[in-house]
Design a binder for these strands. Structure first.
Lengths: 205, 205
DNA sequence: ACCTGAACACCGTTCAAGT
DNA sequence: ACCTGAACACCGTTCAAGT
């Protein structure tokens, strides 16, 4: 009765087989990155198609929804973020690993204006293109958090979800920052201060 | 050479003198509150005009920009928030006053989806309709913060701007919450934990 | 398998004409 | 002073026709 697994990811963009399709796909993605970078995730799709040199129907053929296009532009970056968590989980100082990854995660989530809002709503909404990315981020949060808590440097009552909320709220603050005034770094310091207890057991508890 | 004070607030909506205009103004405001409540601050202005029983031109006549309309729907609420800060500044427990007002401020800033984003960008952008509200909030932050810091219950390196950033980030988190999952209360607790030091000097330091 | 662009729907905003 | 609604511009989205 339930839909096959493929149906869940039916809205996800896939790089086409044919050479001309792949070229268009890549051009649209490149144009989208530029447009989202300048105008946020609500940038005009017609402008993106025009900049990519394709008809608007071609854009929709590859990316059925705006969110699918956004997801595709972020896929590599979010894969990198997960890889970074895996690598940091092997380093010697769990608290330092957590704080470093926290800052990386905030940077990734504030890549485009509007992105973090999508991440926040995708987190508990299965079937959205960005849901998978949110699950991956939760897993990375848990991975680094458990180790940091095990070493006694991070308050034990903190959940991966708490960490995710802190990251997205800081990313939203950065998203709204201007060159003149960016309170996000200070907010990150305050948030990390709230959860990290330095100078406890030095290492292997 | 600089424009007269009136020019600054030229974009602010004013309740008209004539009876028919005042009736339309009030109807538009009521319709806007309903629409923003349901669809966020990007709700259709044509729908609002229709619900208010006026032509679209009438809406623009009273509220030259979307932001002016949003500001008008929030004016009373934000005045109340300032009055609440003034009242709480007279109570005996400065730390309790600060935490209580913090929660009230978060609630006000998350009245409509999209509002807090406007507040964040209006904060350092003079001439926007909501700038005055942001200045008022900063003043309330400073008022309650100074007293709480004076009593030794709040870390001394915290600025009114830090507090404002914390409030908006929590409000954004609430804005994106669903009935199933609202991490904003927990985030508020973590943020307040980060700045409040309970059990120090009990009262008059 | 993929591309095209006309067609439709919808909305923001302005403004000349009205009372 | 205030109201009206047609007019224009712009964009999202679909789909029949093409290669």
């Amino acid at each position: 009765m339930s839909p096959p697994p493929a149906a869940r990811s039916a809205t996800l963009a896939r790089r086409p087989q044919r050479a001309d399709g792949r070229r268009n796909y890549d051009n649209i993605l490149a144009a989208a990155r530029t447009a989202f970078d300048e105008g946020g995730t609500s940038a005009s799709l017609e402008d993106i198609a025009r900049a990519a040199g394709v008809a608007i129907g071609t854009l929709y053929g590859h990316f059925p929804t705006r969110e699918a296009l956004i997801e595709a532009t972020m896929r590599d970056g979010l894969d990198q973020l997960r890889a970074s968590a895996d690598a940091l989980a092997e380093t010697e100082n769990p608290a330092a690993a957590l704080t470093l990854w926290f800052r990386q995660a905030v940077a990734h989530c504030s890549t485009f204006r509007g992105l973090v809002g999508l991440l926040a709503t995708s987190s508990y909404d299965e079937g959205t293109p960005l849901h998978h990315a949110c699950v991956a981020m939760h897993e990375s949060c848990g991975q680094l958090l458990r180790r940091a808590q095990g070493s006694g440097h991070v308050r034990a009552d903190l959940s991966p979800d708490d960490l995710f909320t802190m990251i997205t709220s800081a990313a939203w603050t950065r998203e709204n920052a201007t060159a003149d005034h960016d309170p996000s770094d200070r907010l990150i310091d305050l948030l990390l201060d709230a959860i990290i207890r330095t100078g406890r057991e030095t290492s292997a508890g």
